[in-house]
């Protein structure tokens, strides 16, 4: 497994290299966007960690250039204040993001999810997340062994979230997948309402959700409970 790191800060690259090599990954490093693009097409990485603020090219441009030729998983490294940038990168085809400063555990989880999604393009028919078991072949959802009644929209929403387990999904992505052509961002409010309904049905404590996590300003992510 090869991971390409595109970041201009040597300290960050060093920490990432040590962290990832310890997990058995092979590492390729690039300090600039131009180098990164060259390595992205010559070393055939399995995953790319891309710093969104690079000195030469904009990280967004690098991402677009990569996406024109490859669907390799790209995880964006960003800073806290840049929600719009995160959404833009995700809409342009980034798989996920981590916010600097990030912990090793969080980064590893993101990389694992990204690699898993690349390996299997079709999601499994039965998915279990915590106490919830979803059988998408039989359209059944159970929580603690009890069947859960869902409306068609709630079901579609849950299915989209579950089949992208661990990945962040933007508001726009969910609206497009569940409502079809509804792309108006004002519909985000409907999304909130349906997420609320869904949480009431599958979360143990809807006020403190463990399964459907809100990524403020970006979207939602379904995760295994801690």
């Amino acid at each position: 497994m090869t991971i390409l790191i595109i970041d201009d800060e040597p300290q960050i690259r060093r920490v990432l290299r040590v962290m990832l090599q310890a997990q058995g990954y092979h590492i390729v490093e690039a300090a600039t966007g131009a180098d990164g693009l060259v390595f992205a097409f010559t070393t055939d990485p399995d995953c790319i960690l891309l710093d969104i603020s690079l000195p030469d090219l904009q990280g967004i441009d690098v991402l677009q250039s990569i996406r024109r030729q490859s669907d390799v998983p790209v995880i964006i490294l960003t800073i806290h204040e840049e929600e719009q940038q995160k959404v833009r990168a995700l809409d342009l085809g980034a798989d996920d993001y981590v916010t600097k400063p990030f912990g090793a555990r969080e980064l590893m989880a993101r990389i694992r999810v990204a690699l898993r999604h690349r390996a299997s393009t079709s999601s499994p028919a039965v998915i279990q997340v915590g106490p919830v078991i979803m059988d998408f072949e039989r359209r059944l959802v159970e929580r603690h062994g009890e069947p859960v009644r869902l409306t068609p929209i709630e079901y579609d929403l849950l299915r989209e979230l579950a089949s992208n387990l661990g990945r962040v999904l933007t508001h726009r992505h969910l609206l497009q997948q569940v409502w079809g052509d509804a792309t108006d961002t004002t519909d985000a409010h409907y999304l909130r309402i349906y997420i609320g309904h869904l949480r009431k049905k599958i979360e143990d404590d809807p006020a403190r959700p463990q399964l459907i996590i809100t990524e403020p300003g970006v979207g939602y992510r379904m995760t295994e409970p801690e």
Partner: peptide, 17 residues
């Protein structure tokens, strides 16, 4: 300010988490 309609309960949930 990036103003959008926010769910209060969700907001508090995110903060507590």
């Amino acid at each position: 300010l990036n103003r959008r309609a926010c769910d209060v309960s969700d907001m508090i949930g995110v903060v507590v988490r």
